[in-house]
Design a protein around this nucleic acid. Structure first.
Lengths: 96, 96
DNA sequence: GTAATATATGAATACTTGCTCATATATTCA
DNA sequence: TGAATATATGAGCAAGTATTCATATATTAC
């Protein structure tokens, strides 16, 4: 398959979004539905700062979306490609 | 989705395999069929050493397979999960 | 045997990344 | 207003990664 350099970079960036165990766990939580930063941090045993930094990257790649409500920010998956990639990858890991 | 720590790490490792533009380009070439290290290097404008190093990682993750023939080593994709991940990701990049 | 070719690999280095810590911004409540 | 809570962000650092260069191994041709 012929691939332009730009597309190769974009693809690599997309997969990079899922190339860290903590990000994978964040995504896995968000597959269930939207969650606040604190809820994610508590659920994953990460600091809020670390979660926030990671969410920033995911946001910039348009993989998650933020919804502000009062002083909380609820994050959710921005499109279903992510969860499809996620489950396909999980498939590979489980019985690949 | 509840995810064990081990599965999160395995998933992240899988996606890490596709988290570099040069590896993405290597995979994109191998989707066409098997190729030697030199052919890959020539086709991608990389040194043979760099390609060999990357192939080593992909091999260790069982994403590519090596077939030795004379003094050449031909690489091919080791399973179709990879190309499915690849094309799903490309889908996202193109009209996501 | 030697020379040439194809690939692999270790060390060194430049670059990237994910975290912590400190601080800033925004919102709610008293 | 001021204190408390939720999130965001920048700097700095430790760990990881991809490359290059030099060298090693393996195969073929002579």
């Amino acid at each position: 398959m012929k691939l332009t350099e730009l597309k190769a970079i974009k693809l690599a960036e997309l997969f990079s979004a899922l190339s860290d165990a903590n990000r994978v766990r964040i995504i896995s939580q968000l597959i269930e539905g939207e969650m606040s930063v604190r809820a994610l941090a508590d659920g994953l045993g990460m600091t809020e700062s670390a979660v926030s930094h990671q969410l920033r990257g995911l946001r910039q790649m348009h993989l998650v979306r933020a919804r502000k409500s009062g002083r909380q920010v609820f994050y959710s998956l921005d499109d279903d490609h992510v969860s499809r990639l996620f489950t396909l990858g999980l498939d590979h890991v489980q019985h690949g």
